[in-house]
């Protein structure tokens, strides 16, 4: 897949992984795994980028005697997810056009 496209998609996936409740690094990777494989060194820059864009906020919580960072989606992050859904409708319509008539030929 095109790298730029994939990068944008992964950003959205990470936002989707925290949209219902805040989550932490390893949990995000596990939640995404059935849909898209993401390595730790890929996830880390994404989280930093999303934080810089204020699409999520980070807070450190003490968990069984150590610290864990939880990522919480912001209002802007939720808005980004909504925008993505609209954008994707356009992509689907383009896909339908590209594959038009292919099934009837089979």
């Amino acid at each position: 897949m095109d790298i730029q496209l994939k990068r944008g998609l992964l950003d959205v996936c990470v936002l989707a992984a925290i949209k219902n409740e805040e989550s932490y690094g390893y949990q995000i990777i596990k939640d995404m795994k059935p849909y898209v494989e993401v390595s730790e060194s890929t996830l880390y820059p994404i989280l930093r980028r999303l934080e810089a864009q204020e699409l999520l906020t980070v807070r450190t919580i003490e968990y069984s005697g150590r610290l864990r960072k939880y990522y919480h989606i912001t209002h802007l992050g939720l808005k980004r997810l909504e925008e993505f859904k609209d954008e994707w409708k356009e992509v689907i319509s383009i896909y339908n056009f590209v594959t038009k008539g292919e099934n009837s030929n089979e």
């Binding site: 932490y24 690094g25 390893y26 390595s39 150590r66 960072k69």
Partner: peptide, 25 residues
């Protein structure tokens, strides 16, 4: 901090220290 947290989370799930580190990039 990020990678330390990951290693600890993986170990908590039952992986050994070595396994957790080997599974990282």
């Amino acid at each position: 901090e990020f990678y330390e947290e990951l290693i600890l989370d993986k170990m908590e799930e039952g992986q050994t220290e070595e396994e957790a580190i080997a599974s990282l990039d």
